[in-house]
Design a protein around this nucleic acid. Structure first.
Lengths: 255, 255
DNA sequence: ATGTCTTTGTGAACGCGTGCACAAAGATAG
DNA sequence: CTATCTTTGTGCACGCGTTCACAAAGACAT
């Protein structure tokens, strides 16, 4: 989600609910697998199982796209692949730039899931002059100075940010100014963008924290619970007292 | 505020909505930043802006944790950092294993966001014998044969899967059998796990596809709309007679 | 044709999450 | 102590998403 504005007209998207849109890629993947096995048709029950969702939900999702099934038979796999691809806009080519070619950026550049879905890595951009020219995933890295030109020349409308958190907002601003209207942000920062620009966030750390919460809950059900450390009171003042016996925040990588 | 002795009876862990849990890491990050700047207190309005959410939502979220604010003043930053960390289970050490040390796995191993939040990379595991011993992020990669032993010896309950899709389910099964109860899956596959095991999925390709959908929608509002590609709807065998949803589909069916 | 069987498409009920709006709580000043 | 001002905490209403359950639609057998 974006920062200042969490717009969601919902009615705008051709009437397709956001939650449904988020599941379409899931169905598409399952259908593609079936297609490769030359399976002609599939029932909502089977496809739902393959996609890991409820069959009623799947049928309702498809109902937003139209009536593409045949009662008593199921859905035509090839036809559905086409319809969903089209609805998602994957029948056209999307040039994408990746900014910040560190470990993660390189991984993204090498990720096959992009190219196979209509996305084309138009350019890799990094602020480090030493990286300029170095090929990553067969694509030479270009310097950040070229950002505006690259976006403009290639008609890029989707940008991926995999820079450190500190550089993310600035990169974002430049991308938007250059014409990018959709951003996939891997940096652990809240980006603020003008209206009309979509931002999706992928935060590896947050996902782990959510897992930790549930993990702790599971562990707490066994034991008598509540005794990790009832100590450590408010410490209310502004004193820089580091709390906790956990001494969290090593702030340094084990590398 | 006394010493927030208000322990919720039994609803403490279970009463927190999932949506709230998902936002806690967001608040925690914003609060940590404030803490580093030695800001003593913060109002719901300010914090909400920093986290990119609505202030009413933030206050309601915090209300599930207890009454940690002071009316007329705001929230004590340090205290809130501690409470949220504790609620998320970040005051304890979570050993994590990463299975599949390709580009993505290496990026994850190097990701600083893990170590700084109580997560410790206990081991890197890969199926390629050639990688065994090679240090990645300062940690030597171990062979997949060691998986069970590593999980067991280190008491690992959280596993990260960054293998190719084809290997993910098998790795998942082995992790679960070895005692892992929370899995963060980066492989583009639906994992099936027994009850009691949590799985969270991060799918880079899906995020881009969702962006593409909205991007297409934006573009479609300007142009004449519709008719992006009336070409070649896959003609599938079996039955015939397709019903066009709303005229926007050529549906070349023979009749 | 007629009947049976399978599977879709959807109306309706329900539950969760969100945001408004305001009373209560506490700080602060006089 | 009283008055005023700030900000929290929450009751309430609304809308989205999920799920149930079933009628309608078509395939298939007789």
């Amino acid at each position: 989600m974006a920062t200042g504005r969490t717009h969601r007209p919902a009615t705008r998207s051709r009437g397709i609910p956001e939650a449904t849109v988020a599941r379409l890629p899931l169905y598409l993947r399952a259908l593609t697998a079936l297609s490769e096995r030359s399976v002609p048709t599939v029932s909502s029950e089977e496809l739902a199982a393959a996609a890991g969702v409820n069959s009623a939900k799947l049928r309702k999702d498809f109902s937003y796209l139209g009536s593409y099934g045949t009662r008593g038979v199921g859905y035509d796999v090839e036809y559905l692949v086409y319809q969903i691809s089209r609805e998602l806009g994957l029948t056209q080519d999307w040039p994408v730039v990746i900014v910040g070619i560190g470990n993660l950026g390189a991984a993204l550049a090498n990720y096959g899931g992009f190219a196979s879905r209509g996305f084309r890595v138009a350019a890799l951009i990094d602020a480090d002059p030493a990286m300029a020219g170095t090929p990553v995933a067969g694509i030479p890295v270009q310097h950040a100075d070229e950002l505006e030109r690259i976006v403009s020349d290639n008609g890029v409308s989707i940008g991926v940010i995999s820079t450190p958190a500190g550089a993310a907002q600035q990169v974002c601003d430049r991308l938007v100014a250059a014409g990018v209207t959709s951003i996939l942000n891997f940096a652990p920062t809240v980006l603020s963008v003008p209206d009309g620009v979509d931002v999706r966030k992928v935060d590896l750390s947050i996902e782990l924290q959510i897992l930790a919460f549930h993990e702790q809950r599971k562990a707490g059900e066994d034991t008598s619970e509540n005794a990790p450390d009832p100590a450590a009171p408010p410490v209310r003042s502004a004193s820089a007292g580091r709390k906790g016996p956990d001494g969290d925040m090593p702030a340094v990588m084990p590398a």
